[in-house]
Amino acid sequence: MAVNVYIPTPFRRHTGGQSRVQVEAVTVGELLRSLAREYPDLAGRILDGQGGVQNYLNVFVNEEEIRSLAGLDTPLKAGDEVSLIPAMAGGGRRTERRAGRPPWLNIM
């Protein structure tokens, strides 16, 4: 049973530039392991050392993130779309300073 997988831009260099791939799987865990086998450079980006999902990675089945479903055991059915989207987060005080005057733009 084939499921569509959305590949985010930072992962596409590992999928030959493809933004969508099809994977045969009946659970999210099976899908991620299958992707990791097919595209070995992706393995460490999607799965941690214990076989769980990397903390920073959001995995959606259609509209729902799998942490609010059944995690890796979340079942898949034909026609589902799985989207992989790394977190966009940050903040906090800076701790590093570069030497020299950077070409910043000061807008009045």
């Binding site: 831009t9 920073y56 987060a89 940050g90 906090g92």
Partner: peptide
Amino acid sequence: LTAIFHSHPATEAYPSATDIRLAYYPE
């Protein structure tokens, strides 16, 4: 996805250590 935006309300416009550690979009 051209850019990821955020504001620093009280500090300068330079990536914090956290910004750098959590930057997953090199392009």
